[in-house]
Design a binder for these strands. Structure first.
Lengths: 317, 317
DNA sequence: GTGAAAGCGCTAACAC
DNA sequence: GTGTTAGCGCTTTCAC
C-alpha cells in the first residue's frame, strides 16, 4: 500500500475501499516503535497566556504540521519541575525534537536530560549546547535607542526583566551602546514583573529623576509600564515615551498603540523548524547551528519628542 | 520495577543506579502499543493567537498534565482540511481523547472520523454527539442585559459573530429575553470580524440609529468595537456602553477596561478533563454528558448610564 | 517482485 | 513470588 509493489488496479481499489469502509488508520505508535524515529516535536513554553508565546507556539505548530510533525506542548509556568516533567515525557515519546520558547528555568538539569538524546532548538533565547534561532536583539536595542534619541530624548532608561538572559542582555547592550555613543548615560532598572507595587514606584522614581523615554525588554513589560504611567497620571507620550520589544497583536490596538521592535514570529518559527530538520539530518555531533532573523521598528503612539522640546518649539513659533 | 515484586534493597538500589546512569526511560510508544491505550489528548483550536483560546488551551494542558495526560494540539485556522488532518493524527496516535475548543469548521466529517473511536469533549461550544462543557451562556446574556438596562439604557443592540453556534445563540437569547421583558426591542447585527470597513460602518449605523449600549458575543468583538468607536470619535462609555463576553486578560488592562461576562477558564478546563476521564471510564455507549459552569459579570470602564440620563440628572440638580 | 519472518520495547498472562 | 513467553501493529529484511 505504501508506494512499492504492484497489484491489479482492482485489487488496489478493493483494498482502498476496505480501508475506507473500516476506517483503517495505521497505528503511529507501532510504526514509530519499529522505525525508531517519531514525528512528535515537543514545545516547552512558559505560559501560553502570554501573547508573545501564544503567537510563537501557534506558528510552531503550523510549521511543524507543514513538515509532517505533530506538536506536543507543556506550560512550565516558570517552574523547574513542571519543565522537567514535560521534557521527560518528550523523552518517553522519543520525540524528534524539542523547541524551547523561553529560557528554561531548570536549564542545568534540562541539559542533562536532553543533550545528546533529542535535538533541541532554542527560539528567542540562547543556549550554549543546542541550536539557537533568535532575532537580532542587539540591533533591536539599537534602533529603539536611535528612534528615541532622534526624537530628541536625552534622559533614557532601559527597563529589564529580572531574568537577564542573553536576549535581554543583547537588547540592553544595543540600546546602551547607541545611548553612550550619543554622549549620554542610560539608566538601567530591573523590575520584577510580579510586583505591581514596586513597578509603580520604580516608574515614578524614573520620572522624578527626569527620564523622558524608556525602552523595555518586551511588550509585556512595556504594557505594564503604560498601565503604571496611566495610574500615575503620567501622559504617554507627552511626558514619557515608551518603546517595547516583540510586537504582540495587542500592541497594535489603537488604545495601546505601542511603538515597538517587531520580532518576525512566522519567520522565527519557519527557521526553527528548518533548523530542527537540519539537525536531525546532521546528527547530534555536528556543531551547533545559530540563526538570526531581522527585526523592524514599528512606530505607534507611545513615542514622541520630549515635552521640553515641544514647548521650546511652541515658544519659538 | 513497577511496584510489584520484592527484591533485596541492594538489588533495587543497583537497578535504580543503573537506570540513572544510563538515563533509561521506558518507551511510551511500546507501552501504549501493548496496552492499547494512550495518554495523549488532542486539542483542536481555531488559532492560538486569539487570547481566549490561548488561555483555555493553556489550562487544558495544565489540567491534562495533572491527570497524567500529554497534550497535542493543532490550529485549524478555520480551515476544514487542517482540522481533519489534525483529527487524523489524533486517530493515528490512538489518543485518549480530543478536546474541541471551538465549533469545528468541518463538523460533519469530524463527526464521521471521531465518533465511536475517540472520546470527544466540546468546550465552550455545543455538539449533539460528544460530551459538552459550556458556561451558562444564556445567563451571561441575561446579566449583560440586566446591567445595561439597570444603567438606564433603552436602545440596546447585540453584535454577533457570523458563526451563530449554540453558544452565541444562547448568549443572544438570554440578552434578548431580558430586553424584551423590559418592554424594549433589541437590535441584532451580525458582523464579519474579517472586514474592518464593514465593522466601522455597522457601528456607525447603530449609533446613528440611537443605540447607546451594545452587547457583543465575545471580548474579541467587543475590543474591535471599542477600536471602531475610537476611530469614529464615539466616546465609550459616555456615548456608547459596551459589554463583552469571555474576560480575556487583555480586557482587564486599564486602557481597555472592558465590562464583560467572565468565563471561568480554569474551571472549564478542569471540568473538561474530568468529563473526558469519566467518558473513558463509561465507554462510548453511555449517554452524552453535559456540564455547565457559571459566569460572572465584571464591571469595568466601558459601561455607564447613557448620556441623556446624565444630562437629565445634571439639569435636576 | 512477492511472501514469510523477525523484531522494535514493552506488558500481561502464565507456568514454575 | 519470580522467570518466561506471547504478542501489541507495524516495517524491513531476506529468502523465494
Amino acid at each position: 500500500m505504501h508506494g512499492s509493489g504492484r497489484f491489479t488496479p482492482e485489487t488496489a481499489a478493493q483494498v482502498r475501499a476496505a480501508i475506507d469502509r473500516l476506517g483503517f488508520r495505521p497505528n503511529v505508535l507501532a510504526r514509530q516503535l519499529v522505525q525508531q524515529r517519531s514525528t512528535t516535536v515537543g514545545v516547552v513554553v512558559g505560559a501560553l497566556d502570554n501573547p508573545i508565546y501564544a503567537e510563537l507556539v501557534m506558528q510552531f505548530e503550523l510549521e511543524a504540521a507543514k513538515h509532517g510533525f505533530h506538536a506536543m506542548f507543556c506550560n512550565t509556568q516558570g517552574d523547574e519541575n513542571a519543565e522537567l516533567a514535560g521534557l521527560g515525557s518528550y523523552l518517553d515519546y522519543r520525540s524528534a525534537g524539542v523547541l524551547f520558547v523561553s529560557h528554561p528555568p531548570g536549564w542545568i538539569k534540562a541539559r542533562q536530560m536532553i543533550e545528546g538524546r533529542i535535538p533541541a532548538v532554542f527560539v528567542t533565547c540562547d543556549s550554549d549546547w543546542g541550536d539557537v534561532v533568535r532575532c537580532d536583539d542587539e540591533t533591536g536595542g539599537r534602533i529603539a535607542a536611535e528612534h528615541l534619541i532622534g526624537l530628541g530624548h536625552r534622559r533614557l532608561a532601559y527597563f529589564g526583566d529580572t531574568v537577564d538572559d542573553a536576549s535581554n542582555r543583547d537588547r540592553r547592550h544595543g540600546f546602551e551602546h547607541v545611548v553612550r555613543t550619543a554622549g549620554l548615560t542610560p539608566t538601567v532598572v530591573t523590575w520584577n514583573r510580579y510586583r505591581a507595587f514596586d513597578r509603580d514606584r520604580q516608574a515614578q522614581e524614573a520620572i522624578a529623576d527626569g527620564i523622558t523615554a524608556i525602552f523595555t525588554t518586551d511588550d509585556y513589560g512595556a504594557i505594564e509600564l503604560l498601565e503604571a504611567a496611566d495610574r500615575l497620571h503620567v501622559d504617554v507620550p507627552a511626558d514619557l515615551s515608551i518603546v517595547g520589544f516583540d510586537d504582540v497583536i495587542m500592541s497594535g490596538l489603537g488604545r495601546i498603540g505601542l511603538t515597538t521592535v517587531r520580532q518576525p514570529k512566522r519567520l522565527l518559527a519557519e527557521t526553527a523548524l528548518v533548523t530542527l530538520i537540519e539537525r536531525i539530518k546532521r546528527g547530534p555531533d555536528s556543531p551547533p547551528i545559530r540563526q538570526t532573523v531581522p527585526v523592524e521598528l514599528v512606530i505607534r503612539a507611545s513615542t514622541a519628542p520630549p515635552k521640553h522640546l515641544t514647548q521650546t518649539q511652541f515658544r519659538l513659533s
